[in-house]
Amino acid sequence: MGHLYTTREKYRSEQLEIMKRKCTPPELVCCAGSREIRDREVVFVGIGISDLAGAVAKLVHTPNVILVAEAGYIGFPSVAVLISPADNSAGTMAMCHQSLPEVFIDQQSGFIDVAYLGFAQMDKYGNVNVSYVTGKQLKMNGSGGGGDIASSAGRVVYTAEFNPRQWVKKVDYMTELGFLDGSRDARKKANLVGGGPSAVATDRGVFRFDSETHELYLAEVFPWQDEKDIEEVRKSFPWDLKVAGELKIMEPPTERELWALRLMDSTSNYILPSILDRPIGRIVLAGKLNLEGYDEYLGMQEKAFREILDFIS
């Protein structure tokens, strides 16, 4: 695995302060998530942050992984972040162009080792809701391939920015299966192929699932997260969150990881939260819907394509 560990003592407090401010939450999520896979694994990537983590891994930590996107692209070097699983950048220099049912059939046969997914609500046993929030009358995106991936991928790494509202006692709608009721062989009884969730990478630490009880616990934190911060994290859970006896300290994002991240997401689609702050939003709001605006936006993408193609070929 691409895990990188350190100790709190290695850094002075003012150094930690600088490092903390240097990275945005999505960057921390992607870098922590990218360290979760082993080389030569077959990795199912989602879109946005759940693709960026896989892309960074491919570029920096584990160059022999085979990336898979659900529209039918397999074994691509990842020249840009996927906004859709059918993006042209996944088709560039890919090993195989096939179809959507074939990808899922391969997954049900057990060829996918690990998958990245995002989530909106999660309970103690890793069951996930991405469909509806009932109290607020909110329809979210829905399953997409998430329901299939959570059922059949070897293991699942969830990636999302930390938000206290994500953690619930019971999900409003169980779209993606975790360990169901948490009983020892719940997944086996349900006849599911995959192993279930293995980690949840956030900007406030990495959470894992106990091998016996299948309960979520805090396993790794960033060096700037002190006792006070961990206590704050624990308080945002509606249940008593356990913390690993030997809490590991993650290395902060490395220069190499950040380089890959910025190259992948050249138009800041996932680093800037609001669409109107991103370059594309600014160009549209400025009313530049003419050829000049198109040149400016597409030129930005093309420049990053060139740099990454130079690097991988």
């Binding site: 959507l100 899922f104 049900q108 169980m174 993606e176 192929v193």
Partner: peptide, 23 residues
């Protein structure tokens, strides 16, 4: 996708192992 596969196979259904036990 399997709904179309079953339609194309000209059979009434296709079995699968996705989301057994979910909502």
């Amino acid at each position: 996708a399997l709904r179309f596969v079953a339609g194309g196979f000209n059979v009434p259904f296709m079995p699968c192992r996705s989301s057994i036990g979910s909502d």
